[in-house]
Write a protein that binds this DNA or RNA. Sequence first.
DNA 1: CGCGATTTGTGCACGCCTTCACAAGCGCCT
DNA 2: AGGCGCTTGTGAAGGCGTGCACAAATCGCG
Lengths: 252, 252
Amino acid sequence: MSQQRHGSTPGEAGGVPAFPDLPEATIARLPEYLRALHHLAETGAETVSSEGLAAAAGVNSAKLRKDLSHLGSYGTRGVGYDVSLLVAQIEYILGLDENRAVCLVGVGNLGHALAGYAGFASRGFRVVALFDTDPKKVGEQINGLTVRHLDDLERIAAEESIAIGVIATPPGTAQTVADALVAAGVTSILNFAPGVLSVPSNVDVRKVDLAIELQILSFHEHRKASLTALPGGRAAAASPDKQPEDQEAVGS
Amino acid sequence: MSQQRHGSTPGEAGGVPAFPDLPEATIARLPEYLRALHHLAETGAETVSSEGLAAAAGVNSAKLRKDLSHLGSYGTRGVGYDVSLLVAQIEYILGLDENRAVCLVGVGNLGHALAGYAGFASRGFRVVALFDTDPKKVGEQINGLTVRHLDDLERIAAEESIAIGVIATPPGTAQTVADALVAAGVTSILNFAPGVLSVPSNVDVRKVDLAIELQILSFHEHRKASLTALPGGRAAAASPDKQPEDQEAVGS
DNA sequence: CGCGATTTGTGCACGCCTTCACAAGCGCCT
DNA sequence: AGGCGCTTGTGAAGGCGTGCACAAATCGCG
Ligand SMILES: NC(=O)c1ccc[n+]([C@@H]2O[C@H](COP(=O)([O-])OP(=O)(O)OC[C@H]3O[C@@H](n4cnc5c(N)ncnc54)[C@H](O)[C@@H]3O)[C@@H](O)[C@H]2O)c1
Ligand SMILES: NC(=O)c1ccc[n+]([C@@H]2O[C@H](COP(=O)([O-])OP(=O)(O)OC[C@H]3O[C@@H](n4cnc5c(N)ncnc54)[C@H](O)[C@@H]3O)[C@@H](O)[C@H]2O)c1
């Protein structure tokens, strides 16, 4: 059942008992819960019901309760969840209390925007290095960081204990960059370049492909159009919602 | 909402009357297949086996065959799939042959990068309008397009038959922008601002949240770290592989 | 001190998705 | 013409995730 016996809050690393074996689908939703909780905290709320939090996160309340129960959650029946406690719990599970160092490779159009993005810092990450291979880019100052040459990756990654790398280079060089990241000891990669990366099984890759998102939307447009052309005036019904998420990663 | 009526698909002989009812999971993978196919076509390949295409797209070959079978695919046993035919089929299904018009709202850091992204055009979309509310931004020329004020959205959306909108504004204004898009007749939204959007049930929303991706990676880092702290050198085993993918969308 | 209102945690059933395994179909070679 | 090897398409099984419905737990109040 519930092992609430775990009176210790996050912050301690030595004797982490058994790491909870969360379903991937749950993991993908935790960040959304966290964002909603932070928002609630700002409004002064001290507790939230599963119903309230679910609404704020755009999910079903039963699903939310099950998700939270998986991480041996602290909730009080008849009352709800303690906001700040839950925030701490989720941040601990996600490892955000480590304020992980992130590096960004490819300071072009997109990389520039990412380098200046405040959402990194506010959500538990530190961008500690920028890399590029273009001599015109190397040396440039962006948002307080100097663009380094990719050749320095290995050294700097070690110095700064970088575990996460973001790839924002053209598709053709993405695999090369990924190899370099892996060689430098990076074990998590977020890839913005279209295409499939091949990495060792202990490295996790997540991919963001704008065109894929648009194409999925396009499909639904196509579908909607072909339905409109049909008989029944199938219009908007009272469908609750649906705001899924997921992806998966490699592992070994 | 009135789009030209399209008769039938590019390579269809017998007639594909009803719109195929594809599983969401399949739809999410079709764009990846398409990208892989385009790549193969460039290398001169005329046919591909499910095994080959699956490898190029980073999925299981059985899954790929089932996916393609859902859209009544044309493959030849003992030979494989005809590349160009399959490209045409998937593009038709995804509605890419309509070269859909897309508008972008919020020409800031991220919006600027998106506005200049060549990947839109090359994958079946036309960015036809940019919007912002900042007087300093309105009127600016970006990549051949003039930034318009959001107030012009409704008129321009109608003129250009814009069905897809991209939101790249600060989180606080995302809902307002979404409402404006919906009012202008946009029925598909790609949202880069963190948070949950509320839209009518006939509007599809897909969300891209960088911080969520990083947090998921962070979780796996955390997990990997806690495993490393365990018993013997249980390093890499003979785990085949695993390629992710997925997300979902609203519908109705 | 007990009762009712409230909300969590979860057993269970259902449906979707993945994966295996194999028969059917196709081209080629002899 | 016939056989052989290759590849597709799919039936069936298993796993995962979702959502319902409800018992258990807790609080506030009389
Ligand atoms: N711009 C966008 O809005 C956008 C959106 C989605 C995806 N993408 C993808 O993101 C990637 C980057 O897009 P972009 O528009 O910024 O391209 P870009 O050409 O503007 O920038 C690419 C940068 O990567 C650098 N680079 C090239 N090879 C490198 C290497 N081996 N090591 C390190 N750096 C290297 C280049 O010098 C350049 O600065 C592309 O794969 C693109 O498809 C871009
Ligand atoms: N910059 C990034 O790399 C990045 C990455 C991921 C997500 N995001 C998200 O994307 C969004 C935009 O980020 P950004 O860095 O470009 O911010 P930004 O502040 O640079 O740009 C926001 C732009 O939106 C405009 N705007 C504000 N209110 C508007 C409205 N009501 N209608 C139209 N335009 C409006 C502003 O004038 C500004 O030009 C944010 O929600 C951010 O969280 C950004």
